[in-house]
């Protein structure tokens, strides 16, 4: 059976569309609202959802995701619960779900069990910012048996030979990190994204999606022009944080996502 992520990108390619990917911290601000948010994002046209499984020491994350992770951890969100929530989501929807977490919780859970549970609960891919391809062989081999993609990141600091190697290793899509830094919404994006993407496309036919820092429709429009999709996390979580206990939350999320979507598809 074809992996849902691969299927999604084929479908997008046929339609000549770019992928709109959102990141949410699992269980943020609380479990019920989180589930509502995922459903809402799908309804508003998201193509893929990254579910951030919180870790106590998120070294690749900026303040927003540090805060949301801390809240999620206080609510005792762990991998086991994340799998349960994923299973619920998969029952109602066909949107590809990807886990984003750090390596330690996954290692501790047990690689074999992790892979099986991904398959059982409809997790189609995994992104682990502190697991470069050099250290990923054991997990990759195990995930392969359960048809779960292991998605790797390329950074602006990656030299050509790493771009080539990571393009080869990454499954589903390639996650291009738009900036030299941690996650978090930015006013301005780097001027070198276009040329870097150009270089990577010389090594691969796989889709490349760009994340880290994207917060505005104008940025989505710009990046959409020369990539296969965009990933937004912190900017969305900032809205969730601002409206978390207010009635207007879903409306605000809709407003933001539709603006991004319009920009991306224009």
């Amino acid at each position: 059976m074809i992996n849902r992520i691969d299927e999604k990108f084929q479908e997008l390619k046929k339609g000549g569309r770019k992928a709109l990917i959102f990141y949410l911290t699992v269980g943020y601000p609380d479990m019920v609202t989180f589930m509502k948010l995922v459903t809402a994002l799908e309804n508003f046209g998201a193509d893929l959802i990254e579910l951030g499984v919180p870790f106590s020491d998120p070294v690749a994350d900026g303040l927003t995701i540090q805060r949301t992770s801390e809240v999620a951890l206080k609510q005792k969100i762990n991998l086991k619960k994340s799998f349960l929530l994923a299973k619920e989501l998969s029952k109602k929807s066909n949107i590809p779900l990807v886990f984003m977490s750090y390596y330690n919780p996954i290692y501790h859970y047990g690689l074999q069990k992790f892979a099986h549970d991904c398959k059982k609960t409809g997790i189609s891919g995994v992104i682990i910012p502190d697991l470069p391809p050099e250290e990923a062989t054991p997990l990759k081999n195990i995930l392969k048996q359960d048809n779960v993609n292991l998605i790797f990141l390329i950074a602006p600091t990656s030299p050509q030979e790493r771009m080539r190697m990571i393009s080869k290793e990454s499954q589903g899509f390639i996650y291009y990190v738009s900036l030299t830094g941690v996650t978090g919404a930015r006013e301005k994006l780097s001027g070198t994204i276009k040329s870097s993407l150009h270089k990577i496309y010389r090594f691969t036919k796989k889709p490349i999606c760009v994340g880290f820092g994207i917060s505005k429709p104008s940025q989505a429009r710009e990046i959409g022009k020369y990539s296969d999709g965009i990933i937004i996390g912190s900017a969305l979580l900032n809205i969730v944080e601002r409206y978390k206990n207010k009635r207007g939350l879903i409306k605000e999320v809709e407003k933001f996502t539709s603006e991004i979507k319009v920009a991306l598809r224009s």
Binding site: Y103, D130, E134, E135, R162, V177
Partner: peptide
Amino acid sequence: KKGRFGIFGGRFAPETLMAA
């Protein structure tokens, strides 16, 4: 060469730092 002492060690770092 991979920075391993037996099974321990390695380089579990974000991609941004790998070249550095």
